[in-house]
Simulated assay, not measured.
Amino acid sequence: MADHSAIDTTQAKYPWKTAVRTAFQVGIPAFVGLLVILPPILQDVVNTFGHQLPAALTAWLVGAATTITATSALLARVSAMPKVIDWTRKFLPFLAPDRAKSNTPIAGE
């Protein structure tokens, strides 16, 4: 198998693209889930018990979705660092951005 370095991966070459892509991949479902789907469910639960949702709940849900999205982007950025990629190849090859140390075939190849 060819000798690869962490610098060869697109994740390491374009770390901010990786972080932004991950933020979109996580942010869209986080905001939809926490701001579109969850409030009506919570309101139905609250209506069952005869109370009303606090006004600050929407602000809290926006903060939660923002925190989830920012954390995922930060983790994607850290994961794109060459030393982290090399460590991942060594200890968690199934999470590596390429197959440099893995013999596992990718579907469709």
Rank of each mutant, 00 (worst) to 15 (best):
D86W: 04
S102I: 00
R77F: 11
I7T: 12
A19L: 11
G27D: 14
A2W: 06
R21D: 14
P105S: 01
T69I: 08
Q25Y: 13
P54R: 10
M81N: 13
A100C: 03
V62D: 13
M1W: 09
L34T: 11
G63Q: 15
V46Q: 07
L57E: 01
W16C: 02
A55H: 10
A2K: 11
V84A: 08
A23Y: 04
T67S: 14
P54S: 12
K83M: 06
A65Y: 03
T88L: 09
V78R: 06
H4W: 11
L75K: 08
V20N: 01
Q25C: 11
R21E: 14
V46L: 06
L57S: 02
S72G: 02
A55R: 09
K101R: 11
A107M: 01
K17Q: 11
V26A: 08
S5N: 12
F91V: 05
K90N: 04
P97S: 08
P15C: 06
L74D: 05
T69Y: 05
Q43T: 15
T48G: 14
D3S: 11
F94T: 11
L95N: 08
P93F: 02
I37D: 10
P39D: 03
S79M: 07
L75E: 09
V32Q: 06
V36W: 05
V46G: 00
W60C: 11
G50Y: 02
M1E: 09
V78E: 00
L42K: 04
T22L: 14
A19Y: 07
A55V: 13
H51Q: 10
F31L: 15
L35I: 04
A30C: 13
L53F: 00
A12F: 04
T48Q: 12
K101A: 06
R99N: 12
H51K: 09
P15D: 05
Q11P: 00
K90E: 07
S79V: 02
T10H: 07
G108F: 05
V45K: 09
